[in-house]
């Protein structure tokens, strides 16, 4: 949408209007929810990002159920065991898909074309997810979680984070796992996906050569 200098002067200093205009300009719905994708996206290697997102949705959904009913339910009832297992296996698949997604993006140098922020938020999501995974293991409230806590505490204390992240403090770890870390992951992943939509899906390194060869072949 074209903007006159009068329009711009009216929105100067008005951050909500400026943000709305920037979003409208850079992320129209045709970019946010595209109906088509470039030809090179038709490859299995491009599927792993969205598979990771599906697993994250499952982790959040099952996590909400576990939060509502609590440890006595997930340790003793059949339904509790089932939802607990779904939560656990969603996490296993989440990391599995995320690692293949990371490898795929690393080898196609996915930070090209102004995509550095996409790459950084992806790396950040990976690191925060590992911490969230550790806190999840600590919340099993069984012998395993006690063993993991007391194996981890010395290493973590050696880095100096023990004062604010004490793996032997069940209450603190619970709050990290069900609120703080999911909030950080949600924000980082939202930024990651928005930057993917803003810059578009990264093309393979030889995409230009392939497209040129195809169009040359088609014109003959």
């Amino acid at each position: 949408m074209s903007q006159t200098s009068e329009d711009r002067s009216q929105t100067r200093g008005n951050w909500t209007a400026a943000l709305g205009e920037a979003a409208e300009r850079n992320l129209p719905f045709s970019k946010l929810l595209p109906g088509t994708q470039p030809a090179y996206v038709a490859s299995w290697i491009y599927v792993f990002g969205v598979l990771t997102l599906v697993c994250l949705a499952l982790i959040i959904a099952t996590g909400v159920v576990l939060t509502i009913f609590g440890p006595s339910w997930w340790h003793t009832s059949l339904a509790g065991h089932y939802i607990n297992s779904l939560h656990f296996w969603s996490v296993q698949l989440f990391f599995l898909f995320m690692v293949v997604h990371l490898w795929g993006k690393f080898w196609m140098a996915a930070w090209r074309g102004g995509r550095a922020r996409t790459w950084i938020t992806g790396g950040l999501a990976f690191v925060v997810s590992i911490i969230a995974g550790l806190t999840g293991y600590l919340l099993q409230t069984n012998l395993d979680s006690q063993w993991i806590a007391f194996e981890a505490k010395d290493g973590l204390n050696a880095t100096g984070v023990g004062a604010v992240f004490n793996v032997a403090n069940l209450g603190q770890i619970l709050m990290f796992h069900v609120f703080l870390l999911p909030a950080v992951i949600a924000a980082v992943v939202l930024g990651h996906v928005l930057w993917v939509r803003l810059r578009g899906v990264v093309p393979p390194i030889d995409a230009a050569a392939i497209e040129a060869a195809r169009s040359e072949g088609a014109s003959r």
């Binding site: 038709a42 490859s43 299995w44 290697i45 599927v47 792993f48 599995l96 690692v99 293949v100 490898w103 795929g104």
Partner: peptide, 13 residues
């Protein structure tokens, strides 16, 4: 993981 990665590269979509 390595097998899955290679399959994702070579299997036709």
């Amino acid at each position: 993981l390595i097998v899955l990665f290679i399959l994702a590269l070579v299997l036709p979509f």
